[in-house]
Every structure is written in structure tokens, then in C-alpha cells.
């Protein structure tokens, strides 16, 4: 545990979310009813994904500037963890939609936009697995990563807001904070977002450390043989 204070903070915040998320009173709303508590779990998944993809994009730019293969490892594993969180976000969203919108998949613009974003990042993984040469793989996937990040912004934030959508915060549909994210919910929601983000970064850094170690091992082996 190199720097452990933020991991303890993560445990405290997510632990608090799991407990307080069910015990603290929420606004009484039609359709949503008690499912409004999903806000503490579904929304932070997407926020964490965005944070991880941002970190991945920053390391992609860093790699292109420095040419260090370590930066490519950072970029790749932030993206992989981000993809995992996008899957959690999509599945929890579909489960929630089943009970509030009537169907798990209603071709809602927000659902379509996030699905396209996920497919773009899945293609990133396919691209990485398709290239054997390390340098080439790092360079091409770094360029593709920046492209994917630039597409994620309009697909998730802009396009769903320009058309009618069932999803709160889109197409004339108010976001939670306008009508029902009351002070009680904020008390859980903000710690939840921070906690889940820290958990996402913790998971990503574990992968990164493993692969940095493997990279170091392989390279020292190569040096010994030379």
C-alpha cells in the first residue's frame, strides 16, 4: 500500500454510501418511489467511468509526448477499468429503467449514446489486442484513445440533451438536482460519487502496478540476456 490514505477514505465513503444510502430519508416521488436510491449507485458508475477515461486520455497524450511504454500501460489500464465501470453503469441503468420506464431497453437517446460510447471503447480493446508490436500498439492505441475520448463527450453529454429523452437531465427533462436532489440526498450523493471514483482508481492502480511490474521484469530479463 504505497499511499494508503485515499484508500481508507474510499472505504469510509463507499461504506457510508451503502449504509446511509438505505437509511437516510428520500423525497417521496411518483414512479421512482424507493428506486430513487439507485442514484447513489448508478450515477457514480458513469462519473467514475468518465474520470477513468479522462485519466486514460491524459496518459495517452503523455505517451505520445514522451514515448515511454509505462505511460501506455497507465493509459490502457485506466481505459479497461473505465470500460468495466461503463458496463456496470449500463446494466444498473437497464435494471432501473425496467421498473421506471417500463422496459430495460427503450432506444432512449441516452441509452443509445452511451452504448455507442461503449462500442467505441470496446473497439479500443480489439485494436490493442490486434497489434503485436509493442511500440506500434502503444502509438496507434494512444491516437485512437484521444479520438474515442473526443467522441465520448458529445455522445454522452451533448446529443442526448438535444432530443427528447426519458433520462433525467436530458431533452427538457429536468435533472435530479432541480427538483428532488434535496439536502438529505446530497448528504449521500456527493460522498458516494467521491467514494466510487476512488474505488475505480484503486482498482485501476492495482492493474497498472501488476502490468508495470511485468513490464519491468520482462525488460530486465531482456537486458540480462543481452
Amino acid at each position: 500500500m504505497r499511499t494508503w490514505w485515499w484508500k481508507i477514505l474510499c472505504i469510509l465513503l463507499v461504506g457510508y454510501t451503502v449504509i446511509a444510502g438505505f437509511l437516510i430519508p428520500v423525497p417521496r416521488l411518483d414512479i421512482l418511489n424507493e428506486t430513487i436510491r439507485n442514484l447513489y449507485f448508478h450515477v457514480p458508475m458513469w462519473f467514475t467511468m468518465i474520470a477513468l477515461f479522462t485519466a486514460s486520455g491524459i496518459y495517452a497524450i503523455k505517451y505520445l509526448r514522451s514515448g515511454r511504454l509505462q505511460d501506455d500501460i497507465y493509459s490502457a489500464h485506466y481505459a479497461i477499468t473505465g470500460i468495466a465501470f461503463s458496463v456496470y453503469g449500463m446494466l444498473t441503468g437497464m435494471e432501473w429503467a425496467k421498473f421506471t420506464w417500463g422496459e430495460a431497453w427503450s432506444n432512449d437517446p441516452k441509452q443509445l449514446g452511451s452504448a455507442m460510447c461503449m462500442l467505441i471503447y470496446f473497439a479500443y480493446l480489439v485494436l490493442r489486442n490486434g497489434l503485436k508490436d509493442e511500440e506500434k500498439r502503444a502509438k496507434i492505441s494512444a491516437v485512437y484513445n484521444i479520438f474515442a475520448y473526443a467522441l465520448m463527450i458529445p455522445l454522452i453529454f451533448i446529443l442526448p440533451r438535444m432530443v427528447d429523452s426519458l433520462h433525467p437531465g436530458n431533452g427538457g427533462n429536468p435533472a435530479f438536482k432541480q427538483y428532488d436532489l434535496d439536502s438529505n440526498m446530497r448528504l449521500v450523493f456527493y460522498p458516494a460519487v467521491t467514494g466510487w471514483m476512488l474505488l475505480g482508481f484503486w482498482m485501476a492502480t492495482l492493474r497498472i502496478r501488476l502490468h508495470l511490474y511485468r513490464f519491468k521484469k520482462e525488460n530486465s530479463f531482456a537486458f540480462e540476456n543481452n
Binding site: 461504506g15 492495482l206 511490474y213
Partner: peptide, 18 residues
């Protein structure tokens, strides 16, 4: 969390031995 902490500890140990 116990799973993650144990994995993290193990990883730190491996990194130190290297």
C-alpha cells in the same frame, strides 16, 4: 474491501522484492 486490501498488500510485497 478485504479482497482488495489483501491483493494490494501482496502487490506491494512483490514490488518490494523486485
Amino acid at each position: 474491501i478485504i479482497f482488495l486490501v489483501r491483493l494490494d498488500r501482496k502487490m506491494t510485497k512483490i514490488e518490494k522484492n523486485n
